[in-house]
Design a protein around this nucleic acid. Structure first.
Lengths: 264, 264
DNA sequence: CGTTATGACTGGCCTGACCAGTAAGCTCAC
DNA sequence: GTGAGCTTACTGGTCAGGCCAGTCATAACG
């Protein structure tokens, strides 16, 4: 029989944290990360050379290198062979976020419906914010993107799709929210990569491209007028019309729930 | 004089991509990442031991280790010393995303306003979808979560906050969109970790908690009635009221743009 | 039959070395 | 003096081999 003698007293007492052995390379990563976060190391500045870091940290070169590889994969520094100035501190970019988001979408096996639903939300919100926050320059960029789309219809779907993406990028930019920008970009990429094979055939018709162009013009018009709700609604409906075909019928409920905004 | 002989012909011809030397360890990372993404390696499964990987990849141990450290820092695998089964494939967690976001905000490459704005969009959309898609069970869970919040007011902010999170989790779940769920969780985590120090003092008042509870009840009521637009609007406004104080006044424009939905 | 020792693994870390680059500084011809 | 070219002292990328402290399965032991 277990009498649980002794141990009980201990477990009743102080709270112990889970102790996990911290690798040496992690310590190094932390120190450099904090130095960057504190601003002691600014983008463009250089880290000491690997061999110099070895002496400063008191670790071996492989260990220091492991730390540098981790920092590098996180987009914080970059090492170039032969560079006498040592590894460079990189400016902050959302590249890491993009990578993580992409992983999320890839590994977590999102359903097509979830992706498109999310895209409708993001693009709709971007349109709404763009309608209310856009500058004249951004509006001009959108008009220009639309013009490019219009011209691209003659060239082919390849070009048209590029111009299409460009338009959405400008709208996302005008929303003044880098998170929307990043997420939209990732989700759009994921959706496109999932249907790229089918879409080339399905949409390679000037009629469909013209219709798509028209829809985009409607969004643009709403943005021009500053009518955020309309811009969002039209934007969502466009996406639904585009992509609903790629979603099994019994999974379209969540998509429709985002379209029927006119509640009446 | 430069006559640009020869080179011109080349640069006029084929398009060359920027060539960047790919490190050996990156190749290894890619291969393992893809194997996981493809599903060849599932969470819980084990990688061969480092020495075994050395022979399989034909690289040296330091190189293989660099690859493993990168994968480990990305939360894909975990190595335990002495484990005879080799490194373990981990299930996906959004922890990396949270880290990335907080980093971006800390390094000033993303504004707090963007984070909160995004949270308003996500939570609003989740509420909207929940109002239109929720089952009776989910509605009951929400009511229960609200009840817990109500009780927690007496206990303290710690408990209240937990119940608060639980409510939002249920709403996100009811939106039937795992992307919303995860992103919402990530953004919420990032926001909380960034203001955790201030919030404990600011909100530790039963009056404020009561007000918050009341707001949540309003959202719940809208969800019960199936009024998606109202649920979304109230949800966004609540978040604004909560968090606007943490955003500099001159950056609140984008937030207000998400609140003023009643358009005249 | 339970317990304990043993040995064959594991990953963490180190030393020392070689190579292919880079760029600064030097030399030397002009 | 000044510019072009070479030398050299670095850089990071990679490797081979080794030591240590853990872990775990198994075999020997009580």
């Amino acid at each position: 029989m277990d009498h649980d003698r002794g141990e009980a007293a201990v477990s009743d007492g102080a709270q112990f944290r889970q102790v996990s052995p911290v690798r040496l390379y992690q310590r190094i990563v932390e120190q450099i990360e904090q130095a960057i976060a504190r601003g002691d190391l600014k983008p463009g500045q250089r880290l000491p050379s690997e061999r110099e870091l070895v002496t400063q940290f008191g670790a071996s070169r492989p260990t220091v290198r492991e730390a540098l590889r981790v920092l590098e994969s996180n987009g914080l520094v970059r090492s170039r062979p032969g560079d006498p100035n040592g590894p460079e501190i990189l400016p902050f970019t959302p590249a890491g976020l993009v990578k993580e988001m992409t992983r999320l979408v890839q590994f977590d096996s999102m359903s097509m419906a979830a992706l498109i639903s999310f895209r409708m939300i993001l693009d709709g919100s971007a349109s709404l914010l763009a309608a209310r926050l856009r500058s004249e320059e951004e509006l001009a960029s959108m008009e220009q993107a639309i013009a490019v789309m219009s011209d691209a219809i003659e060239v082919g779907y390849e070009e048209f799709s590029k111009a299409d993406v460009a338009f959405h990028e400008v709208v996302a930019l005008a929303s003044r929210n880098s998170l929307i920008e990043v997420c939209n970009q990732v989700v759009r990429g994921a959706v496109l990569s999932l249907i790229s094979d089918k879409v080339a055939h399905a949409l390679n018709s000037t009629a469909l491209m013209r219709e798509s162009l028209h829809h985009h013009q409607e969004v643009l018009e709403a943005i021009r007028l500053g009518d955020g709700l309309a811009a969002a609604r039209i934007s969502r409906r466009n996406l639904y019309d585009y992509y609903a075909g790629y979603v099994p019928e019994d999974e379209r409920g969540p998509l429709l729930a985002l379209v029927d905004d006119e509640e009446a």
